[in-house]
Nucleic acid binder design. Structure first.
Lengths: 351, 351
DNA sequence: CTCAAAATGAGTTGCGTACCTCAAAACACC
DNA sequence: GGTGTTTTGAGGTACGCAACTCATTTTGAG
């Protein structure tokens, strides 16, 4: 009736006794310090395995004395998503303080590879771990690899550099996010046929390109009645996005769906509502976008927007900290916990 | 350019010095032990506030010596959702062991108030915290309150007892979940009009009743073209659910949507596919259900099911442990982190 | 003013690990 | 067999706090 998990009350002393060595030797093995015969190492390792020994994390943390420092390297400039991440880090401050963790956010031009790479390189000696919103560029990759070689733990945040040796990526699969957006636009259009517009920041951004790729995949395969128009590049700016979309809506009377890949949501929404008021007879355009912000929340409630694909920024911030901490401590990572889900947010499940 | 969070390197000794008292007095104040004049308490508290002092959790944990024990009281019998929760607790075993946390799952007939209440009462002295899948019944509420009075931390899991004095509820808002299901059925039906069926375990279960309530709310308010049929009570059994639904589908040719509130998914899916093959000409019935299991995953991929409303069982298990731990330590709870979201899972964002 | 009770100071011990030193033992090599 | 090197043991200190004891001071009631 009762099923028990865990109970390791063993200490290093017990392991030492079982392996027939002294505490000092166990310590040497545990921290890969030199001066232990291979055979002895094996004996100690076996004793550890046999008892499923887990160092007491509290004792270890207390003994090392030195506080750990993590850096979050994020885009400068006003980006609501990044601001949310910063805000959630702030909410963790008591949690962080109780563990003597120092977290600093460092604003940088993440779109300039040289600047970003230089920022990263400068961190090597001062931080135990770095979370970075990374541009996928050879120079950035090299900087990340250098950090890893220096013993710093590195996590990519939101945007990955898969070819680097970063320890972990905290973010979503953007192709799957695009596919999800496609399925939503298609299904919510409810059998109508017509054209579908895409507004993106730039197709040069890896995450945007991947989302568009996934979106087109689904549209082509499953919604033959819908044809996708060429991508509008709004540079994540409200005005530009709005103007481009207004022009497009004027040229095509049969647009039934819209996928807004990045920011610029304000402009996109304006363009849509302008059209709606100029011609009240037409069916509403299905509008799917990304991220839950104050604006998208309002648009969802008003019914202007039909769904938002979201990656929970709070979860990302906390996951990044937890992963860095686990890496620094040599603890295993709870993969399932740290995996960022693709959330579909509609009016009734707004968080 | 760099924004720093946290850095409290103060210790109790510093607080004692600032307050002009000894370590012992600070300790008395911190742990609400008697024998300190109110005025002195105030001085100490002020020093703590002023410095935003946070006890070092590692040191505190180490010093108290005693390991903490938590109990998870869950339904006996084969319930895939509960099995998933248990599985995720198992995956945490290394994490738990490193913190000297003992977690035990206790199977009980949670549907019998007396049995459940007795199970709970028996736990008071042995556990520091209890997570319970609770039936909302006066006797259960009393048992929970007794536990709380005895100093045990109590968290309700999946199903809440709002009138009790439990410290926290880990689970979703089932009314909002039902609303979300309603919006999905309505929107995915794409303007068709007709009837909508509901299959539930029992309307006596609080969570099922709340979901149905939310579902009906949305249907009535927003989809006048859809009329909801009386609820079928399948008792979460495959066969019964399937039979009831088959009969209903036979009586009403114009059913366009189906909401499966609880389990019995296998039977529901069978009834749907039987109808589909017997009359290929008809439009597919929009099928929305709950939870991501091996079965619902397959149905989503096959297109039989259109969406699943899900509460991440892994998240619930971990959140329950974290909340109990924070409560036991007297740490603040990260509300945002522990809040369980209502996930909409469709084919392309399957986790 | 006296005496008991309350409040406080001073101190100790121990938690389990990291990190360090120094000496002793085991070993390899010539 | 002696040398130098590698490996190991023994032990200590420190980390910040919980929990405790005991002596001393302060307080309030009579």
């Amino acid at each position: 009736m009762a099923d028990t998990l865990t109970a390791s009350a063993l200490t290093l002393k017990d392991i030492a006794r079982q392996a027939g060595v002294s505490l000092a030797t166990v310590d040497r093995v545990l921290h890969n310090r030199p001066g232990v015969r291979p055979d002895t190492v094996r004996r100690v390792r076996e004793a550890i395995e046999r008892n499923a020994f887990q160092p007491h994390v509290a004792a270890a943390e207390l003994a090392r004395g030195r506080a750990r420092r993590f850096a979050f390297v994020m885009p400068s400039g006003p980006n609501p998503f990044m601001q949310q991440i910063e805000a959630y880090l702030g909410e963790m401050s008591a949690w962080l303080a109780a563990r003597r963790l120092g977290v600093e956010t460092i604003a940088t031009d993440v779109f300039d590879p040289s600047v970003l790479a230089a920022s990263l390189t400068a961190l090597a000696d001062d931080y135990d771990g770095v979370a970075v919103v990374a541009l996928d560029h050879p120079r950035v990759r090299a900087a990340i690899d250098d950090l890893v070689d220096a013993g710093t733990k590195v996590v990519t945040l939101v945007s990955d550099v898969p070819s680097s040796r970063r320890h972990h990526y905290v973010g979503i699969d953007n192709i799957a996010a695009g596919r999800t957006a496609g399925a939503l636009v298609g299904r919510l259009a409810g059998g109508r046929s017509g054209k579908v517009a895409i507004v993106a920041g730039s197709q040069g951004l890896r995450d945007h390109a991947e989302r568009i790729f996934g979106f087109n995949q689904v549209m082509a395969a499953e919604f033959p009645g819908l044809s996708v128009l060429p991508v509008l590049e709004g540079r994540d700016e409200d005005e530009r996005s709005g103007q481009l979309l207004t022009r497009l809506l004027g040229r095509h009377v049969d647009i039934v769906g819209l996928y807004n890949v990045g920011a610029g949501t304000q402009g996109v929404a304006k363009a849509l509502s302008d059209r709606a008021s100029s011609d009240a007879g037409r069916d509403k355009v299905v509008f799917v976008g990304h991220d839950v912000t104050a604006l998208t929340r309002r648009l969802l409630l008003q019914g202007v927007m039909d769904a938002a694909i979201s990656q929970n920024p709070g979860h990302e911030a906390r996951a990044a900290v937890r992963v860095l901490l686990a890496l620094a401590r040599g603890e295993p990572i709870l993969r399932e916990q740290e995996k960022i889900r693709i959330d579909i947010v509609m009016r009734d499940n707004l968080p």
